[in-house]
């Protein structure tokens, strides 16, 4: 009955997204409408430039007519509740409006066009970091659990605590200072050189630009992953069936990778993914430090330009991606741990 669970979870995710977008619409309606009105005035002024040889009276009535037309087009003349519902609906259908200052690479002012071209870059950066992070973290975590309480375990646990409250963007600033400006071995930002090289060289150029941000994220991230893995594995190692397996004389290696990992894998995988999902949301500013032109950098840029529609659109898309991440995570968990599908509740 996995598909039923999938349907339920996806439906539920969509429902939550709708609720959140509605809340955002309520919260930010007034500031969005303010921006929209300013945009309408600007448009009308531009149209007025095209009109000449008309009396002031005619121009006056033209402006008023146009304003009324525009207002009804954007439903600014409707009651507030209807406006909010309309805003929610247009956000859900990715009608995110027009930006005030920022343009997409193609020169488009449509907010969705601007945001959507950043999504793959953010995904690329964080999924690369995630992959490296998980591999190192789980490997180290197993080593720690194997020799719990010994030197390696203790010292790396201290490492976990040392980086616990360290902002990734600060470490990024320091690494840029040393590796990009003092010893010039890494680029200081962006995701390719200008002009971007062609063919296979583009790929290597991308990796070269990816290296420092990924390194920063991994250096901070894998400690936590290792610590988590260690705790889960250590918990499993104290189960009776492990003791029974040991009593039967099964080699320690086999116990660890065969018996323990089978039980420990689902929580490790999901909790790692969950922590990393949270870190994507938490590290969103990180992109700005590295001038990595993703969604986080867009937040920064929109703030500097005071571009409200882009800010809102970016928030809606980020939230959508975050919720999809959570849904996918639950589905993976359901796949790994059959008990979830039946009970439905975690």
């Amino acid at each position: 009955m996995f598909w039923k669970y999938v349907l339920k979870r996806v439906f539920y995710g969509i429902l939550i997204y709708i609720v959140l977008v509605f809340i955002f619409s309520v919260l930010f309606n007034s500031v969005m409408e303010q921006t929209l009105r300013a945009q309408i005035e600007e448009e009308i002024r531009a149209e007025m430039m095209g009109l000449d040889s008309r009396s002031t009276q005619q121009i006056q009535s033209f402006v008023e007519n146009r304003r009324l037309e525009k207002y009804s087009q954007y439903r600014l003349d409707k009651p507030i509740f209807e406006r909010i519902i309309w805003r929610t609906w247009s956000t859900l259908t990715l009608n995110l409006g027009k930006s005030t200052a920022i343009r997409s690479a193609a020169g488009d002012r449509d907010v969705w066009a601007i945001v959507s071209e950043k999504i793959p870059r953010t995904l690329l950066l964080f999924s690369t970091a995630m992959l490296v992070d998980i591999v190192i973290g789980i490997w180290l975590g197993l080593k720690k659990a194997q020799k719990a309480g010994k030197f390696l375990d203790k010292s790396t646990s201290v490492g976990t605590m040392i980086v616990f409250g360290m902002p990734s963007w600060w470490l990024g600033m320091i690494l840029i200072m040393f590796f990009a400006y003092t010893i010039k071995i890494f680029p200081s930002g962006n995701f390719h050189s200008t002009p971007p090289p062609e063919g296979i060289a583009y790929f290597f150029d991308l990796i070269y630009h990816l290296a420092l941000p990924v390194l920063t994220l991994v250096v901070l991230g894998f400690w936590g992953r290792a610590f988590l893995t260690r705790n889960i594995v250590l918990g499993v190692l104290q189960e009776d069936y492990i003791m029974a397996a040991r009593a039967r004389g099964i080699p320690e290696r086999k116990i660890l990778y065969g018996h323990t990992m089978r039980t420990a894998a689902p929580p490790i995988v999901t909790m790692s993914l969950l922590a990393l999902l949270a870190s994507v949301s938490g590290n969103i500013v990180f992109e700005g430090i590295f001038s990595w032109p993703g969604m986080g950098n867009l937040f920064w840029f929109a703030l500097q330009q005071n571009d409200v529609p882009v800010l809102m659109g970016n928030l809606a898309v980020t939230t959508g991606l975050y919720i999809s991440g959570l849904v996918i995570l639950d589905l993976i968990y359901g796949l790994l741990d059959p008990r979830i599908k039946v009970g439905g509740k975690a």
């Binding site: 959140l20 949301s281 970016n314 975050y322």
Partner: peptide, 12 residues
Amino acid sequence: ISVPLLPVLIVM
């Protein structure tokens, strides 16, 4: 729990 904290805080 489905709210991405930091982006929401930034916009708010």
